[in-house]
Amino acid sequence: MGLSVTGKSHGHGHQPEGLKIKREIGLIGGISIVAGTMIGSGIFMSPQFVLSYVGSPGASLLVWALSGVLSMFAALCYTELGTIISESGGDYIYVLRIYGSLPAFFAALNLIVLSKPFGLAAMSISISEYALVPFFPGCAPPQFVVKCAAAGAILLVATVNCLNVRLAIRVQVVFLVAKVLGLTIIVVGGIVAISQDSRIIMDNLNVETSFVGTGTSLSTFGMAFYQGLWSFAGWYNLNFVTEELKRPEVNLPRAIVIGVSLVTVLYLLVNVSYLSVMTPNELISSNAVAVTWGNKVLGSWGWIMSIAAALSAFGSLNGSLFTGGRIMFVAAREGHLVRNIVGLKQNLTNLTHGIFF
Rank of each mutant, 00 (worst) to 15 (best):
G11S: 06
I21Q: 14
G29I: 12
G40N: 00
L51C: 09
Y53S: 09
M72N: 04
C77E: 09
G82D: 03
I85M: 13
E87S: 12
G90Y: 09
D91E: 15
G100K: 13
L102K: 07
I112T: 07
I112N: 04
K116M: 13
F136R: 14
P137A: 07
P141S: 13
L155D: 08
L156T: 14
C162Q: 11
N164S: 15
V165I: 08
A168K: 05
Q172I: 08
L181R: 01
L181G: 07
G182A: 11
V188N: 01
I194K: 01
S195E: 14
Q196M: 14
I201H: 05
V207N: 01
G222F: 07
G228D: 03
S231C: 13
F232M: 02
A233T: 13
L245V: 10
L245A: 02
R254V: 05
R254I: 11
V257T: 12
V265C: 09
L266R: 03
V270Q: 02
L275C: 05
S276V: 06
N281W: 09
W293M: 04
W293I: 07
L298K: 09
A308F: 04
A313E: 12
S320L: 11
A331F: 05
A332N: 03
K345N: 12
N350A: 10
I355P: 00
